[in-house]
């Protein structure tokens, strides 16, 4: 547990509703610098919505989210600035199809952060090399496999030098043999001390990568535990049921 580091992202009493229907209710969670939090829960429990709330893709109806102590519900918050510090990777990769791999990666750093192209290019090359795709930098997304696209999407988010990375079921759309190459990249990031919130259905991976498991059920946090404890001895009945489904 890296709990003695400072709190990077703090969620206090977060409530999200679609009309009258509550999707998330009274979510409280502190994510420390360098911590890897894995969010588990059955489909539709609100875990993806939680991630989307964290970078402002969804509005929230109550509570607060604080990034490095600064409230994100403040009227004057500059989301464009906040999003540079919060990298997000989606289930369907969503690389821009009309741009090459390199152009995809450079777009944010050069247009949003106004960094010098040469410097960004160097960083991008390094990151691409690390995920084993430097030789594909001039290819278009359609020329890549799903796993390769997802690794590029991770590099694209990383190149903004975010403080924290959000992964929303990033392997859910992949063929089984491509899942591993993507998970390996994320595991590598964890080892380097990247702060991450990961929503996944890969239980083995969750166990390996997480410092902390957050189990959500019906929009509420049901259980927060260390992975060993959660997987061997879940405290709540709901978590036990959930884990049973995955044990064949």
């Amino acid at each position: 547990m890296k709990g003695n580091n400072k709190v990077l992202l703090e969620i206090v009493g977060l409530r999200k509703t679609y009309g009258a229907r509550p999707v998330l209710d009274d979510i409280n969670l502190s994510i420390h610098k360098g911590e890897v939090v894995v969010v588990l829960g059955s489909s539709g429990c609100g875990k993806s919505t939680l991630l989307r709330c964290l970078n402002g893709l969804e509005s929230i109806q109550g509570g607060d989210i604080k990034l490095s102590g600064k409230s994100l519900t403040d009227k004057n918050v500059n989301w464009q600035e906040v999003r540079q510090q919060i990298g997000m990777v989606f289930q369907n990769y969503d690389l821009f199809p009309h741009m090459t791999v390199m152009e995809n990666i450079l777009l944010g750093p050069s247009k949003v952060q106004k960094r010098a192209e040469k410097e960004v290019m160097e960083q991008a090359s390094q990151l691409l090399d690390r995920v084993g795709l430097l030789n594909r930098k001039d290819d278009y997304p359609r020329q890549l496999s799903g796993g390769q696209k997802q690794r590029i999407a991770i590099v694209r988010a990383l190149c903004m030098n975010p403080e924290i990375m959000l992964f929303d079921e990033v392997t859910a759309a992949l063929d089984p043999e491509m899942v591993r190459e993507v998970l390996d990249v994320i595991l590598g990031l964890a080892k380097q001390g990247m702060t991450m919130v990961i929503v996944t259905h890969e239980m083995g991976f969750a166990k390996a990568v997480a410092d902390c498991i957050v189990f959500i059920d019906a929009g509420k946090i049901c259980e927060i535990a260390e992975p060993d404890e959660f997987f061997s001895n879940p405290k709540t009945e709901r978590a036990r049921q959930f884990l049973n489904i995955f044990q064949y």
Binding site: N55, L57, R83, I86, M88, F90, V112, M160
Partner: peptide, 8 residues
Amino acid sequence: ESGISIGL
């Protein structure tokens, strides 16, 4: 959303 999330 992908564009929004990189801060465009």
